[in-house]
Measured scan of single mutants.
Amino acid sequence: DHWHVHIDGERIRLDGASEEFIRTLEELIRRGTDARELKEIIKEYLR
């Protein structure tokens, strides 16, 4: 599956992301997590 998110107007691909990770991201977004912080979390995950 190819997922991607838009954060700060930037399109970030989440290739190979699990549904669990996507749900976690959605939860963080709902909580109002800062965009820079979200991008860091995604970069760490994709390593």
Rank of each mutant, 00 (worst) to 15 (best):
H6Q: 10
G9Y: 03
G16C: 05
E26L: 10
D15V: 13
I42L: 11
E44F: 03
K39L: 15
V5D: 03
E27I: 08
H4R: 01
I29W: 03
L46K: 04
A35R: 06
D8G: 10
F21W: 06
R47M: 12
Y45G: 10
E20A: 12
T33Y: 02
G32R: 03
D34K: 11
D1N: 15
I29E: 02
E40W: 07
E37L: 14
G16Y: 11
W3C: 05
W3D: 10
L46P: 07
E27C: 04
E26S: 08
H6R: 06
E27P: 00
D1P: 15
I7L: 10
R11H: 15
E26V: 09
I42E: 00
E27Y: 06
E26R: 10
E44A: 09
I7H: 01
R23N: 09
R23G: 05
H4P: 03
L14E: 00
R11G: 10
L38C: 01
K43E: 15
D1Q: 09
K39G: 06
I42K: 00
L14F: 05
E20T: 09
I42W: 03
R23M: 13
R47C: 09
I29N: 02
L28T: 03
G9Q: 05
K43N: 14
R11N: 15
E44R: 09
E10F: 04
E20W: 07
I12W: 05
L38N: 00
E37F: 15
L28N: 03
G9F: 03
R36A: 14
L25R: 00
W3V: 14
I42T: 01
R47I: 14
R23E: 08
I41T: 06
W3T: 13
K43H: 14
A35Y: 07
T33D: 03
I42S: 00
K43C: 10
R23P: 00
S18Q: 07
G16Q: 08
I29Q: 04
I12L: 07
E19R: 07
W3Q: 15
E20I: 08
E20L: 07
D8V: 03
E37Y: 12
D15K: 09
Y45T: 11
G16N: 13
F21D: 02
D8F: 01
T33I: 14
A35G: 11
E27Q: 09
H6S: 11
G32K: 08
E37V: 15
E44W: 03
E27H: 09
L38K: 00
L14Q: 00
I41L: 14
R31H: 11
R23V: 10
E40N: 12
E19G: 11
R30P: 00
V5G: 06
G9V: 03
E44I: 05
E26T: 09
L38E: 00
R11S: 15
R36I: 13
E27T: 09
R36K: 14
E44M: 05
F21S: 01
F21M: 07
L38A: 02
G32V: 03
D34V: 07
T33R: 06
D1E: 12
L38I: 12
K43M: 13
E40G: 06
R13A: 15
R31K: 13
I7V: 10
R47G: 15
L28A: 10
G9N: 10
K39P: 01
G32T: 03
I12F: 07
I12Y: 06
R11D: 15
E37H: 11
E20Q: 11
H2N: 15
I42H: 00
K43Y: 14
I12K: 01
T33Q: 04
G32Y: 03
Y45I: 13
I7P: 01
V5N: 02
L25Y: 02
R36E: 13
K43G: 13
R47A: 15
I41Q: 04
R13Y: 15
E27R: 06
L14S: 01
E19A: 14
R47Q: 15
T33A: 11
L46A: 03
I41G: 00
L28G: 02
L38H: 00
E19S: 11
S18F: 05
L25M: 07
